[in-house]
Amino acid sequence: MADALRAELFKVLRRRMTHICLLAAMALVLTFYIILWLRIREGPQPRPDGYLEWIELREGMSFRNVVPYGFALERFFATLVSVVFAGTMMGNEYDWRTVGVVTSRGVTRWHFMFAKLASGVVFTFLTVMASFLVALAASAWFSYLYGLPFGTFDVARVLDMFASIGRTSFVILPFVVMSLLFATIWRAAGPAVGASLGLYFIEGIFTGLLSNARGFLSHIPDVLFNVNGDAVMRANGLVGRGDGGVPFLISASGPPQWRGALILAGWMVVILVAVFWRFQRRDIQE
């Protein structure tokens, strides 16, 4: 197992895609903060809710709210890049036929896949952490410029930041393992990334539609990723009214955190069992 992990690390560190994905996540978070800054600079929009929304935006990008708002942003961008990273990491092994070279040398398939999974988890964690540092710096700078509240900065807050990194990574991981599953099913990178991201976006749309339905249909989102991800992310804190009016803000209503975590963990176990079973049972090359 240690050999497979060492080999995977050797490969991942020399892979340009790793650095591109990491930098892309950081750049996207920075870009979003700059866009927020430009919107705030314009002042409130001339509409009934415009002033409240403007206040919420200012609140969101303040250093005091960097944990709830920064991580809400990162959840979106880090999911995109982590899915691309995981899907290409596994799918390229099929595209390049290197998976056959490795397994025909006596490397256990289970070890090979575990090393891939470990890489995906570590990369997700690092992406969330690195892009949080960008959010931290950006919100500190804009708070300084506009005199926005900094809030307290003590040990409890630092610990809360680390817990939030863990929570945000956890919410992203089902899509990472799904990307591994699709790469194993289709034995290619492109379809794996496409299908995972497609599902990520479509699930958001379906959740919105089904939540407005009545009866049984309205409960379907309760067992999907989005609603339960929100439930876990809610523990990072809320900004403003909590009605989700501002991009990426999480609403105050929804299932409790423990239930959200349990359902996401359940999904991850199911997907991982499918990943390992499929990889173990299927021909590497046809």
């Binding site: 490969k11 020399r14 340009r16 390049w96 290197t98 056959g100 070279v101 025909s104 040398r105 090359q285």
Partner: peptide, 12 residues
């Protein structure tokens, strides 16, 4: 073994 055309990591 070498099966079909040799397969390696292209960026290495």
């Amino acid at each position: 073994a070498v099966v079909e055309t040799p397969a390696f990591v292209p960026y290495l």
